[in-house]
Amino acid sequence: MQKISPETIVGSRITNQSLRRWLHSLPGVDKVGLEQRAASLGTRSIKTTSKAWALDAAIKMMDLTTLEGMDTPERVRSLCLKAITPDPTDLSTPSPAAICVYGDMVPHAKKALEGTNIYVAAVATAFPSGRASMAVKLLDTKDAVKNGADEIDMVIDRGAFLSGNYLEVFKQIVAIKEACLRKDGSYAHLKVILETGELQTYDNIRRASYLAMLAGGDFIKTSTGKVSVNATIPTTLLMLQAVRDWFDEHGVMIGVKPAGGIRTAKDAMKYLVVVKEIAGEAWLTPEYFRFGASSLLNDVLMQKQKMKTGNYSGPDYVTVD
């Protein structure tokens, strides 16, 4: 990880005031223009070879997710096996980038995925609300890291953000980042969930993105999937602009992960178009772009089958997970 100095970037000692000044100096976002741009990219037509590439890419960029109260070790194991062999009828199908689970499921996922390149991502910091004391959030994180989580998906304190306490949000991310430290001195990858549906305005989303990048997040992620508005194309587009500009300015590449509500291959391809045209092809890799999704995989698999056979597939021809 390249080291960035928040003080240098903000241009002063980090205080709530200096953060506020810095965040509020970012160019505004015009909602209508942003959404028009997103809609226009949505009309891109992806055919033949590019479609085949995109479908595989979508799988490779997937964080195959199960985040339910009723999750069990068996359920997680089953999902891991699905990740290892997404389509038993086509063994050339790539695997998703990661399995995303609650912290207590990390050991089970690790075990099931042993010997594969599939990462285990754990949601942490009192996911999804984030309403717990810092001590609990830190413990939540450390526990997951200790159990072998490769990636931590934390949530920001939206309450603090919306009340203007940027310093608190910043400090929490920094602290969680430190909690991602492994014994060998490396860090678990940190994805910072902004919960854009709760931040409500695009200006807030841009500011939260910058705050997360400043605090050392490796990824900025849209949503928990647990509120009414999850990932949208305009939100993802905006966050991709943020990481693009961050790279231009500071030379550090940050990843973007839309999560929640992405269910179809068609949707996924629209996102990939946005990645390509906004951030550029450098981001078209699992290292810098992920989909947080549960039901997306099967739709992509059905599309792959359609491309192969020419016939529309059906749910009986892909496995339940």
Binding site: S45, K47, T49, S50, K51, K276, L284
Partner: peptide
């Protein structure tokens, strides 16, 4: 990479 095939 991700080149768009013609979509006439």
């Amino acid at each position: 990479m991700f080149e768009y095939a013609p979509a006439p």
